[in-house]
């Protein structure tokens, strides 16, 4: 069974008495352990689709099953619970909470999941170590570089051990040197079993994934498996 299955998904916003469609009849499946890139020009509906897949947006047409659960039929509370236990997010703007230290930013998702304090401490310590940011734990986001902030953001996205990480232009605010490190991090997570769905318009970033879904004007225009050559090409470009 596919982890993610969408069928005829559409999304429209009211506009001047009518509706403007940003997504139309989208359908695809994502298996557990995949690394998928959603690409498309600006305004093609990438981020909107990611919001629906991340269960942050429940107002859409069509059907969406996550691990067999019909997300389209869930009430907001049920959807929130499903999201909470399965999804981690990485944003282009990092969106670390400015008033919290690195440690507290990592602690927050666990606290929202009612993880006991002792266990939270252990998991935060483990992730700080894994991402090699132990020395930064007491710093505030403003005291970190962009790359370090995104590193923390990725750590925050995975600390609750989600089954899927959704990343929206994860390197969009970084120069490529920093961006490549983040993508290596993401690939490492994927290799450890985490499903990753990312949105980007950067071919180099897309090169880290194995499959690309392309959107154009809200329609799904292509869904292709990337061949190993592309990955090799991406690696050579990265180096």
């Amino acid at each position: 069974m596919a982890m993610v299955r969408v069928q005829d998904v559409g999304k429209a916003y009211p506009y001047k008495g009518g509706r403007t469609w940003v997504l139309r009849q989208i359908g695809f499946e994502v298996q557990e352990g995949e690394f998928v890139t959603i690409m498309g020009p600006s305004g093609s509906g990438k981020s909107t689709l990611l919001g629906i897949l991340g269960m942050l947006d429940g107002e859409f047409d069509g059907q969406y099953w996550f691990d067999g659960e019909p997300v389209h039929d869930l009430k907001p509370g049920q959807r929130n619970r499903l999201h909470k236990h399965n999804v981690g997010f990485v944003f282009q703007q990092f969106h670390l909470l400015d008033d919290l230290t690195v440690y507290e930013n990592l602690d927050i998702p666990l606290s929202y999941r009612d993880v006991p304090r002792k266990e939270r401490q252990a998991r935060v310590a483990e992730i700080l170590d894994r991402f090699q940011i132990v020395g930064k734990k007491d710093l505030f986001p403003a005291q970190l570089s962009g790359g370090q902030q995104q590193q923390v953001a990725v750590a925050r996205a995975v600390i609750a051990e989600p089954r899927v990480v959704l990343a929206d232009e994860p390197t969009g605010s970084l120069h490529w040197g920093q961006g490549r490190q983040i993508m290596e991090l993401m690939r490492g997570l994927n290799e450890q079993g985490t499903t990753i769905i990312q949105v980007t318009h950067d071919e180099r970033v897309a090169g880290f994934s194995r499959r690309v879904i392309e959107l154009a004007d809200g329609w799904l225009s292509a869904d292709r498996e990337k061949i190993h050559v592309n990955e090799t090409q991406a690696r050579s470009e990265a180096s």
């Binding site: 929130n80 927050i108 925050r156 609750a160």
Partner: peptide, 11 residues
């Protein structure tokens, strides 16, 4: 952002 990290509306 907090909501995207799993915070419920009640929280």
């Amino acid at each position: 952002v907090r909501e995207s990290m799993g915070a419920s509306r009640g929280r």
